[in-house]
Amino acid sequence: MSGGALREPWHSLRRQREAASFGMWLFLASEALLFGGLILAFIATRWFHPAAFAAAGREADIVYGTANTLLLLTSSLTMAVGAQAARAELPRLAGRALGLTLALGLAFLCLKGLEWRADLAKGLWPGPGFALEQPAARIAFAFYWLLTGLHGLHLLGGLSAIAWLAGQAVLGRRPWRSPAFEAAALYWHLIDVVWMFLYPLLYLDGRAA
């Protein structure tokens, strides 16, 4: 029934699955507080400097930002399909969906790298020679670099975990029914959800003005 996925100390795969998801949710709660605290700091600072933050939002590249939003949403779809297919023991669908997730995540990081390079060329690093006049726009861009960098690191971690698990499964060292795929999927969806909030805060501010 469990196909070799059941481990000590659990008596059933159902309990093992619930424990894996529970542990991941606890970790995700700490991640939510990390990003939630930073996002609240962003909103609190923006409250004091609305004009400078709007000017900073207009400088962020909306094309890269929107393209990356769509890439990440689609990678959440492929990850959800991959985890469900792994659970249903459909190895071909699971392998393809996880491979697509990896490709979409890598594409996100590549676009992010190109965007960062363009930002640096535009003088958007909050140091000497910063492009914007408003002093508080430096704070907005300090948040931009911190939040996108931290998010990129998380994405890299998620990619490594998915590549490792999928590689093990393809080599036959991990049964597809292993609860690890669902736990990895939960982490991947969190990365997506964090970006859903970074997108309006960093890219959509000040567009209508």
Binding site: A80, H189, V193, R207
Partner: peptide
Amino acid sequence: NMAVSLGIAAAKMLLIGLFF
């Protein structure tokens, strides 16, 4: 503007949380 876009972000979070 920001309230609407954050509201949409919350709706997306809810969908991802419930279904994915």
